[in-house]
Amino acid sequence: MVVFLGIPLYVVIHGSLTTETNQFTFANFKQTWEFHSYRVAFKNSLILSIWTSVVGAVFGTWLAAAVVTAKPGGLLHRIVQSSSGVLAYFAGVPLAFAFIAALGLQGVVTVLLKHFGIDLYAHGFTISSMTGVGLCYVYFQIPLMVILITPALEGLRSEWRDAALSLGASKLSYLRHVAVPVLLPSFVGATLILFGNAFSAYATALALVGSTLSIVPAQIDNALNGNVLVGADRAGLTLGTEMIIVILVVMVGYWLVQRRARRWLR
C-alpha cells in the first residue's frame, strides 16, 4: 500500500507544489489553469466522463432491472451476468482495435452501412472524435453498471412491493415513493464510480485516437513523454495532482451516498 500508492502519491503531489529548485510554490497550478490546452483537456475529460457515466448508468440499470425481474437462474440472467463480468474489463487496446475494425473509416459496420446508403462519416461522425471515444467508453460503462447495481436491485425486497400494492398504492407510486428513494443512493454511488472509471481511462483513448485527443491523462503523457515539451515535468505532475483532487471529491461523494444506501440494504 505504501509502496504502490503512498510513494507515487507523495512524488506527484510534492512535485506539483515545488519548483525545480525544490521551493514551495503554487505557480504550477496557476500555469496549468492559464494554459488553454490544459483547460480544454479538463473540459473534455469532464464532458466525456459525465455523459458516458450517465448513459452507462441509465442503460446499465435498465438492463440490470430486466435481468433481476427475469427468472432467476434463467438463460437471460446467466448470459447478462457472465458477459457483464467479461465486458466490464474489455477496455484498452483490444476494445479500441475492435472499434476501429467496426466503426473506423474503413470499418466493417461503416462500409456495410454505406452499402445501404447511410454514410456515418458524412454526418460528422468520426471514431477519433469525442463522440467516437465516448461510444467506446459506454461499451465498458454499461456492463460495469450492471455489476454495480444488481446487488442493490436484488436487495429491493418483493415484500415491500406487495405491502405497498396491498395498501392500495399504484405501481407508479410504489416506484416513486419506495423503489426510487431506496435505490437512489446506490444509483448515484455507482454513477460516481463510472465517472471515476472514465475520468482515469487512458489506454482506450490513446489506442483509439492517439495523442491528438485532448484529455487530461493524454496531456500528462505529452508533458512527461513527448517529443516537443522540454522540462514540462512539473506541469505533468500538477495535472496529476488535479486529477487526484477530482477523484477525491468523487470518493467523498461516494462515501456519503454509500452511507445512505446501507441503511436500506442490510
Binding site: G124, T126, G210, S211, T212, D221, G226, N227, V228
Partner: peptide, 17 residues
C-alpha cells in the same frame, strides 16, 4: 472535409508541431 491529419498532437510529436 475530415481529411487533414497529423502524426499526433503538436504537444507530443515533433513532426506535428
Amino acid at each position: 472535409h475530415n481529411d487533414v491529419a497529423l502524426n499526433g498532437s503538436p504537444l507530443s510529436a515533433n513532426a506535428a508541431l
